Simulated scan of single mutants.
Amino acid sequence: MMAAAKKVLVIGGGFSGMSAAIMLARGGIETDLVEIDAGWRSYGAGISLHGATLRVFAELGILEAFKATGAATDGLVVRMPHNDQVIVTIPTPPMPGTGLPGNAAIMRPALAAILADATRAAGVSVKLGCSFETITQDELGVDVTFTDGTRARYDAVIGADGLYSKTRATLMPEAPQPEYVGQAVWRAEMTTPEGIETINMWLGKGLKVGINPVSAGRSYMFVTEDRPTNDWVEESELLPQMIALLDQFPSPTLTAVKEGLSEESKLIYRPLEKMLLPQPWHAGRVMLIGDAVHATTPHLGAGACIGMEDGLVIAEQLLRADTVAEAFTAHESRRWDRCSMVVHNSARLSEIEITGGDQKEHNNIMSRSMMALGEPV
C-alpha cells in the first residue's frame, strides 16, 4: 500500500509542525516546511511537560538530546504559601519505554533547537521568513503561492501555525476565536532553590506559584494570577509586578527566589487563552493541528504534548492510508477525545482556581488527567 501523499507542505515551524515534518520526511514523503519567523526563534522561559511528551520524544528520536539538555523528575509537590509545608504529593507515573520519571521540563528555546536540528536531519526542506500567500485546491492537489513569490503544488497541506493561525483564518473564517480565561501567567528563569527536586507549587489567594527544574541546577518559575481583564503589561513593569505578586507568599523558598530576581531572569508575561475548534479540523486537503485547533491553558502541562502527538499521528495516517481524505478522517477520530479532554480539564482547573472552588476536585482532575495522558495515543 502506497502513502496517501507524496509531497506535503507544513505551515509553521513550532513544536507541532516540526514533529509532523520529521515523521513525514522519515517516512519517505517529500516535505517542505515554511516558517514566517526568519530567525526560527522560540519565545518563552521554561515549559513543563507531561511524561507522555517523553514518549513522543522517543518516537521522534530526540529523547537522548532531551536527557542531555532538559530535566525529568518524579511527582508534583503542593505546599502551603507561608511555611513551605507539604499539602499533597501527586505522583507522575513514568512512561514505559522512556526510562525516565513522569514529569519533565526544559527551556523552550532549547527544545526548539533540538527539534530544528532533527527537522533538517530528516531531510525536510525548510524555508524561513516565509509563509503562504494563497491556497487553491482541486480534487487532486493543493496549489500554494508563497510570500517570497514562489509557488508549488502538494498532495496535502498541514497548518501548524499556532493559536492565531493564518491557515485557519483563511480556510475557516467562521471558526471560533481564542478566548481569554481570566488568568495570566508570569515566568522567570533561576538557579534551582535548595530542596527543590521536582515541580513544586504554592497556592495562594488568586495566585499559584510553581517552580520546575529545567536542567542541572536551573529551574523556571511560573506565577499564575487571576486577572479579570486581558491587560497589556509593559516590559519595564514585569519585574516590579512579579515581585509584588511574590510579596503575598511569606514562604522561605519563595522569599529567597524573589530577592534573586532581576532583569536578567528572562521575565515573561502571557494572558492565558483557550480554543477548541469543532471537527472537522480540515478543509479539503488542508489539515490543522496543534494550537490551531486545540489551544489549552498550561494547567496540565500537556499543550505541547498533544500538539506534538498531532504531528506524529497525522504523519502516521498519511503514510498508512490510501487517500488524503481517509488519512484526515482517521486522524480526527484518533485525536478528538484526548485533545478535548486536555482543553476542557485545563479550563476547569482554571475555573476552580478563579472561583475558589473545591481543592479536592482540583486534585482529582489533575490525577485523572495525568493518568489519561499516560494511555496509548
Rank of each mutant, 00 (worst) to 15 (best):
L319G: 14
K6P: 00
W336N: 02
G301T: 05
A116V: 05
R348W: 09
G284N: 10
E139I: 06
H50D: 15
M275N: 12
P91T: 01
S42T: 12
H82T: 07
G217T: 02
D74Q: 14
V181Q: 13
G75R: 09
T119G: 00
G141D: 12
S131W: 06
I314C: 10
F146P: 07
S265H: 02
L312D: 00
D117K: 13
P250G: 05
M275W: 11
A58P: 10
I36D: 05
V34P: 07
R335P: 13
T192N: 07
D161W: 08
P81T: 00
A302V: 13
V181S: 03
Q85K: 13
N230V: 03
T255I: 02
M242G: 10
E309C: 01
E225H: 08
R270V: 13
A5K: 00
F57I: 01
S265C: 06
D226M: 14
A104W: 06
G217N: 08
H299G: 01
T296I: 09
Q183D: 01
T89E: 15
R26M: 05
V343G: 07
T69Y: 08
D117A: 14
L60M: 08
L267K: 11
L60D: 10
V78P: 08
L246T: 06
P91L: 10
R334L: 15
A4Q: 01
K360C: 11
R348C: 07
L318V: 01
A304T: 03
V126T: 03
V86M: 04
M371D: 15
R151K: 14
G14N: 06
R41S: 15
V77H: 03
S333M: 14
K266A: 14
A20T: 01
H299E: 06
